[in-house]
Write a protein that binds this DNA or RNA. Structure first.
Lengths: 165, 165
DNA sequence: TTGGAGTGTCAACAAAGCTGACGTATTGTG
DNA sequence: CACAATACGTCAGCTTTGTTGACACTCCAA
């Protein structure tokens, strides 16, 4: 306190800067979910359905337990969402081959089609933001977000990333 | 398509990179809310109470209508939250001086104390992430988030920023 | 064969959003 | 002054998405 500005400038760590970061996160997340939400509300679906569809698409054949770990909800909560998606023919649940207790989840054609609509909308906004900000800013964005994750979530995030490419 | 890598490298705009950005946003937001959520669940409060407390603290004396605009919820929804906060003595609602229809909202001592606990926890995580990533990354983080906001939200975000400093 | 893991389902409940309708106090306008 | 509009609060009812707790079934492995 009252020691003036350090030569290596830690001004970006002031409470005011941190508060701006917090508010930026809050408002940006609302923008981030706005486009898919608009598409979903025209059907009988919500954000929970989007998340399930997203991660099933990302890791086809994933089990219910694995999905539970990624989404961090109870199986009762996930099951309600999953049931409607299966009934509506967007998701297929196949009995596991090696372990027949498990259910492997896949998107149907129709499920893939909805996933594409949703992620196209979300990617469009992300792409615009990335392009506006440029590659260096994007790198910083990714770095800060990764540091902000909880340990277990970061592990899952990284494991998904390896999966993708 | 199939034209190879451009010399100015737009590789950071590939669908895979965008998808990683989307997932980073999802996992980071969960980390972002985790600490306050833990504090809140020990009381009878939720995220909605936190948001109200945050923005009342940020703009003391703000009106209900203004808070509605910032939070983007209905007055019925906000009122439920606000009522419990007033009953519990965390928020004070004073009749407006110039316009007696308005209610100016303030945190009480107790309200300020809770706000501090919540934002200390949230800032600690943000500070750690900022420090890990460094000033340039933080600048990029802020830039991308701002681009990701909807027009109206961006306006509100900037107006809050002017207010703060 | 038996214990435990993975899965699904029933019931009951809570938080936090929504719409619609209505009442009251206050203010601004014609 | 009369009246419309604004700001706020509240009642009732509904939805989504989360929670616990209890229980049953299938199937794997010791």
């Amino acid at each position: 306190m009252g020691e003036g500005i350090r030569s290596d400038s830690l001004l970006y760590l002031t409470d005011e800067q941190l508060r701006q970061g917090i508010e930026a996160m809050y408002f940006a997340y609302r923008g981030f979910t706005a486009d898919p939400d608009r598409i979903l509300e025209s059907m009988a679906y919500g954000r929970a359905h989007h998340r399930a569809i997203h991660f099933i698409n990302r890791a086809p054949g994933t089990t219910v337990t694995n999905l539970l770990a990624i989404l961090g909800v109870t199986k009762q909560s996930l099951n309600r969402v999953l049931r409607t998606l299966i009934e509506d023919g967007l998701v297929e649940s196949r009995v596991g081959t090696s372990d027949r207790r498990e259910r492997n989840l896949y998107l149907t054609e129709e499920g893939i089609s909805l996933e594409n609509r949703l992620s196209d909308a979300q990617r469009a906004r992300m792409r615009a933001a990335f392009r506006d900000a440029g590659p260096d800013a994007v790198s910083g964005f990714r770095q800060v977000l990764e540091s902000m994750m909880d340990g277990e979530l970061r592990r899952q995030y990284k494991s998904l990333r390896e999966n993708g490419q």
